[in-house]
Write a protein that binds this DNA or RNA. Structure first.
Length: 288
DNA sequence: AAAAAATTCAACCGCTTATTT
DNA sequence: AAAATAAGCGGTTGAATTTTT
């Protein structure tokens, strides 16, 4: 039953290819007894002929009990679109906002649905919501940051109609691959940059130095809204240090870990909160 | 009805980052 | 402090399935 396909064979001692039910069982049992991690000892302890890497992948993308099976919902799709517009191909980062979905799944979904100027209906819908949110934020910023500096009056006009298309992002260099690097944000890149600059300014006005750890600004991962802003701020002025380093490591978690931050700041001093991001809120999520 | 083309998605690879020894 | 090992990430592949011709 194993090697029936040309692949599923053994190579260098390790089995490869599709997992069998028995293999899954072994892996599940291992995790039940030993927890996640130490993937390389799976083979030793269970006799499973799979590399640690393969075991981890199987668990994370398929066996994990908290995975949500089934199709991506329209809400999830919108979140994917929005976050991709914001962050580009940082799939694992995006996946953190979609409980039960894996980075792999989201990546596949994006590629098959949106990579190649696909169903513009969906895109347009999501884009409309995305732009609306931006508008809301902007007016909020205008209100709150008026003494801050002269707000340039620009209307959310833009409008091109063609597609994102994207990639070639091939972000080998993550730091250059700014959050809004590709995709549907591309045409609005300039606007987005300005918006983010404003967010940055505002944040520092109200929450100097990442002290914005009030619950209203926290995300599941424990980061704060400061993360996003500061990360995007570093985008253009690459000159400096503090690059948003690799994949999931920029932003929350490591950068703004709560351990390093005094969290005695009282209630949300931030300029915005969950309600700034209706979609995420719908999902029961918080905006980072 | 069947062959070809397109799509899907699980799993792989190489590389980077983090942790352990 | 350095080397080795493990974990994590994003891009890519290709067998299986679905759709189109």
């Amino acid at each position: 039953m194993e090697g029936q396909f040309g692949w599923g064979r053994e190579e260098g001692g390790w089995r490869k290819g599709p997992w069998t039910a028995q293999e899954d069982k072994l892996l599940v049992e291992y995790v039940r007894q030993h927890g996640e991690g130490r993937w390389n000892s799976v083979a030793k302890l269970t006799g499973l002929k799979r590399s640690g890497k393969s075991c981890r992948l199987r668990w994370v993308n398929y066996l994990r009990p908290d995975l949500k099976r089934g199709k991506i919902t329209p809400q999830e799709e919108s979140v994917i679109l929005e976050l991709h517009a914001l962050w580009g191909n940082r799939w694992s980062t995006i996946a953190r906002s979609l409980p039960g979905r894996t980075d792999n799944e989201i990546k596949n979904y994006w590629r098959t649905h949106f990579k190649k100027g696909k169903p513009s209906k969906n895109i347009e819908r999501a884009r409309a919501r995305f732009l609306k949110q931006r508008r809301e934020m902007q007016s909020q910023l205008l209100l709150q940051g008026q003494d801050h500096h002269q707000q340039k009056e620009k209307q959310p006009d833009h409008h091109h109609d063609d597609d994102d298309d994207d990639d070639k992002d091939t972000s080998r260099d993550r730091e250059a691959a700014a959050p809004a690097a590709v995709s549907l944000a591309q045409q609005n890149e300039e606007d987005l940059r300005m918006l983010q600059q404003d967010m940055d300014d505002l944040l520092f006005q109200f929450c100097p130095m990442a002290s914005c750890t009030s619950s209203s600004c926290l995300l599941p991962g424990g980061g704060s809204c400061a993360s996003v802003v500061s990360a995007s701020a570093s985008e253009e002025g690459s000159s400096g240090d503090h690059q948003l380093d690799g994949g999931a490591t920029w932003g929350w978690g490591s950068l703004w870990n709560l351990d390093d931050v005094v969290d005695d700041v009282d209630g949300g001093a931030c300029g915005w909160d969950d309600s700034s991001f209706p979609l995420l809120q719908d999902q029961g999520l918080a905006f980072y």
